[in-house]
Design a protein around this nucleic acid. Sequence first.
DNA 1: TCTGGGGTCCTAGGACCC
DNA 2: TCTGGGGTCCTAGGACCC
Length: 487
Amino acid sequence: MAGGTLPGTATDEADGSDRVVFHVDMDCFYASCERLRRPELAGEPVVVGMGYEEGETIGAVATASYEARAFGVESAMPISEALDLLPRRADADPDDPDAPDPEAAGRYLPVDLDFYKAVAGDVKAVLRDCADTLREVSVDEAYLDVTDRTAWDVAGGSAAAGESDGGGPPPSAAAGPAEARTLAEGYARHVKERIEREAGVPASVGVAPNMSTAKVASDADKPDGLVVVPPGAVESFLAPLPTAEIHGVGPVTERTLAEMGIETAADLAAADPDRLADELGERGPELHRRARGDDDREVTPTGLPKSLSRESSLSPTADEGTKRETVAALAADVARRTRERGCLYRTIGIKAVQPPYDVNTRARSLPGPVDDPDLVESVAFDLLDEFADDRVRKLGVRVSNLDFAESDQSTLGGFDAGEGTGGGGGTASDRGREGRTRSVATDGDGGKLTDWVGGEPSAGDRGETDESRDRRASERGEGQASLGEWG
DNA sequence: TCTGGGGTCCTAGGACCC
DNA sequence: TCTGGGGTCCTAGGACCC
């Protein structure tokens, strides 16, 4: 094992859990992507806005560069509020005494997800190349298991030890654990540099023996950070952090913990798990483990999505026409995306948010998986009826209970032959669509399901478990394919 | 922060089945 | 018919994440 990275390490890792896990987190990713194609934005405050159009003040901040954050601009903040803190550079006019100071102005750009996904593809290519196992969490974040590629051994043996600043105080809480240079740190630096070189965007990397600690480590020194937490240093690294830094502790849990007198990870680590379970349910003991750096989850490849949805905000309205129009558009979009991804769904749901912020969800499950845009719309309309007289500020449509296996049957060829075309009508191109489109008849009084038109769900998936389907799918690499689609 | 959009997982209650 | 328990599925809501 490691020739003594830090005291007290190797021996209690006898279960073979002495893994090396990287968490790679791209720094203000959307803003970095914009800088990649517009180098003149380097060093400028950049704000990328969702729902934002040139010159508009609506929408919300998707990503703010660190220069913009210095002015107080934060993710999810309304653009109008961000403009108060950081005026638009375009509005600056040296000749107008009332215009904003160009020195205190920023660049505002709309989200261009397609471009960011292309850049993310370059990043992922590097990560895939560098990892034993890669789990992509989102477009700008991933875990890598690199246990078989590197180790916790101190790099360069005595040479590294000799050059270390071991006599002085730890540089900082974040950098402290890295003072003994390990092979893992060198490898992380290599990965980080490759991302920068081959994708052109900066990343922060956390290195630790498990996922939850690596996640906290990547956050500890952003941007452009590299924080290494060797086994044995985990608990002391986490101990001083406020509970909110622990992955899974949000505002509500933070408050609950504070009321219990738990403010830091050390407090959480020392708390009674039973008492935590009383207050927080199953999550209590889990957070307790994370605060102690005790996390034996394997890094597993990204799975297939569990649901797909689309939602959008409206200025609050009770108008039936507006609501139905919105839901129809959302339903069509969701149906289009599921079809593109070749997946069927068995549950269709809506979300209706009433002012001030009252979230309602309704869902209905079908007897079997379908790919039927008209049905998404009619079920969504049906569910919307309950809110016919209500003012809403946001509407959403969602499909879940996804089934990727059945559509494979059609893409593999044999599916549905002689079933959807039995009626005689239907061109070849109709068949192409019908092969994946199960229609369900609806009756006159509200679109209740009455019958299967296209027959039973294909024989192909009968008796097959979700697990085996997922496994088959991920063996074909679909888990990776799915990532590029996510935003 | 008067709240943007797309996801995940957990919980709890009810229906239904043996 | 009452009693009980266990299992699964469905729906709705909540917390959290990026």
